[in-house]
């Protein structure tokens, strides 16, 4: 993956995500389905200028959706929990929501 923006799609701001950020200095992003942990790590380091300790990812299959007699699927997506190295300054991504 060439572009960091094609790896990281958006931050995920939820109750769980905010808790993790507070307690475990872990950020949560929606990332490209084809990105692997290493690419996510590089992208976060490059984009936010921080050091990353570890990355956990999980895949989500798109849910079935129906429009009358046609049915299809929402796109699959991937979530990544990025733990920053101890002592790293926390990123305030929610600043300009």
């Amino acid at each position: 993956m060439k572009n960091v923006f094609s790896v990281i799609k958006r931050p995920i701001i939820t109750e769980k995500g905010l808790d993790k950020k507070e307690d475990e200095s872990t950020l949560c992003f929606e990332v490209n389905v084809h990105a692997n942990k290493r690419e996510v790590k590089e992208a976060v380091e490059k984009l936010f200028k921080v050091k990353v300790a570890s990355v956990n990812t999980s895949n989500f299959y798109g849910k079935q959706r129906r429009r009358g007699r046609y049915s299809g699927f929402k796109p699959d997506w991937k979530k990544a929990y990025v733990k920053l190295k101890a002592g790293e300054k926390m990123i305030e991504y929610a600043e300009n929501v």
Binding site: I12, I13, T14, E15, G17, L18, A94, E95, N96, V97
Partner: peptide, 15 residues
């Protein structure tokens, strides 16, 4: 992403 009443104030103030 938040249950009703559980949104942090900082987010409320922004939104």
């Amino acid at each position: 992403g938040f249950r009703r009443g559980k949104t942090p104030m900082s987010l409320i103030l922004q939104r």
